[in-house]
Amino acid sequence: MTITTTDVQTPPNASSTPAKNRAGDRNFSWATRGAGMLILVVLAGVAAFLLLESLPALSADPADIEGGEGFFAYVWPLVFGTLAAALIALIVATPLALGIALFISHYAPRRLSQGLGYVVDLLAAIPSVVYGLWGIQWLAPNVRGAWQWLADHLGFVPLFTGPASATGRTLMTAGLVLAVMILPIITAIAREVFLQTPALHQEAALALGATRWEMIRMTVLPFGRPGLISGVMLGLGRALGETMAVAMVLSTGGFTWSMVTSGNSTIAAEIALDFPESAGLKTNTLIAAGLVLFVITLAVNMAARRVVTRRQAFSGAN
């Protein structure tokens, strides 16, 4: 970027006659600054209101909180469910997204790949409630058999303890819906950075006799790694905070290690399901859970930014 407006702010003759302090200029610059400050105020307001409204729950008598054992006993199964669903989504979506991005950027015919790029962008825009509806109506009945099989054959693993849910509305299904939702997001970012790999690097690798995969491993992947990581982190942030898909697909319940029976819940789903009918201390408890979610996603986003900025120094981008 070569935008430097500071050097043109003062006219050349500033030393002899100072520029007139125009009212329009002053008002406009204050308006823009005010808008910027408003954003900071809003964010501070989000944090302040969440804190203020969650204080009653944090300081309440443990027996009054749902479950009767205090706020942290209430919230940790939700945190577990949130992390588990997001983790399932990431494990499923990351390799697939990498494959699709490579397919679009380096394997598909040029004309096809541009159209596919548009389609992926459009899929990323589909509202989450539509994915939720699809998950409950199409995916859950179709994967029911697979969970039954897992419970029958791998039931000794705590994660697959039976009996498998008869409706298919399990945390595993919710994780799969999340995976489908974040797939276009990760793909869009990965494709973008893969396409920016300098053509000279790729041609040099091919000229040395590399196969296509060796070329990709030597030039495209190292170049695109920061972008890929930030895409995955963005997907993780989305999966952690995603509400509707989980609220609709998962048949929520108490904590269980098994991913293939109904049970477990996530913070966001718990809020969406219970908040509209909540009152009194329950409202405060839910807002406190929202605060926990806010802190988790904040930590993920900041970690993502740190990873990206540190990796960028070693990438081919500069």
Partner: peptide
Amino acid sequence: LARAITFFVDVMTGIPSIVAGLFAAALFGV
């Protein structure tokens, strides 16, 4: 100020939508 705004706009893009909803609900509740 500009650096702070840039940073916090980044932070804001990561706010889960349900948390934004809770904020508005709490604000209007108060």
